[in-house]
């Protein structure tokens, strides 16, 4: 079980705002790792820096032993690192199937049909709505589409940014079941969540991010039991 992703002493600025202040963590192959923390803690900033959308002032991101510094986002996807962005960011004016095809942009034309078949097997709802314009889907369906789209690139590491945001509790449960299934099927997962309860229940390991710093780390169960986490995030 080797390290697939290693983030080391990452510093990211938004203009003059120091949003991520020396974050270090790692994700091992086959794990579900979660970063939890309040709004503004630097979780999304960290993910977007890994994806290459934002640039670090200093520190490093290493994926499968390769430094990602200076690699454009569209080439990072080709390395096998996909992100389901915050707010889903599906292409609202394109059909469900076109969204999935865009997810397979890095793949050969021959692999698109089997990829679509896999996505529809995992998300039967998307198959029913394949010709529908994505903007007409419900929130839960849009989240499924965003996940299905990211999976089309056959990622080794899937990063999910707030997949539970804005969803009803029953749908949140469904989304987390899917995350667990994907992991069991062999995809390593890095999950960013404000919903600490749900995230800690699926994660093997977790890190707590507060105003740009990692303040706690441990297994999902350890953090679930920790007083500090109970008080700050789980309403205990």
């Amino acid at each position: 079980m080797g390290k697939i992703l290693e983030v080391n002493d990452l510093h990211v600025y938004y203009g003059s705002i120091h949003a991520v202040k020396g974050v270090s963590f790692e994700v091992n192959e086959g794990e579900i790792v979660t970063l939890i923390g309040a709004n503004g803690a630097g979780k999304s900033t960290t993910l977007n820096t890994i994806s290459g959308i934002l640039h670090a002032r200093s520190g490093s991101v290493t994926f499968e032993g390769k430094d990602l510094h200076g690699i454009a986002p569209h080439n990072i996807v080709r390395q096998g690192l996909a992100q389901v962005p915050e707010g889903r960011r599906i292409f609202l004016q394109m059909t469900v199937e076109e969204n999935l095809e865009m997810g397979a942009y890095t793949q050969s034309n021959a692999s698109i049909a089997p990829g679509l078949a896999d996505a529809y097997a995992r998300f039967p709802r998307l198959k029913e709505r394949r010709k529908q314009i994505a903007g007409t889907l419900s929130g839960g369906e849009q989240q499924m589409l965003a996940m299905g789209r990211a999976l089309m690139s056959k990622p080794k590491l899937l990063m999910l940014d707030e997949p539970s945001m804005g969803l009803a509790p029953i749908l949140v449960e469904q989304i987390f079941d899917i995350i667990r299934e994907l992991n069991e099927a062999g995809t390593t997962i890095l999950l960013v969540e404000q919903n600490a309860q749900a995230a800690l229940s699926v994660a093997h390991r977790a890190y707590v991010l507060e105003t740009g710093n990692i303040v706690l780390s441990g297994t999902g169960a350890e953090l679930m039991a920790s007083d500090a986490v109970q008080k700050a995030y789980l309403g205990g």
């Binding site: 569209h74 292409f91 004016q93 394109m94 865009m102």
Partner: peptide, 24 residues
């Protein structure tokens, strides 16, 4: 076409398109 669809994707959301592996 793939390129045509990519153009529509870029016109909707550049960052999301780049996360798909599309060179904006």
């Amino acid at each position: 076409t793939k390129l045509g669809k990519a153009m529509r994707a870029v016109s909707e959301d550049k960052a999301a398109a780049s996360l798909m592996g599309i060179s904006v």
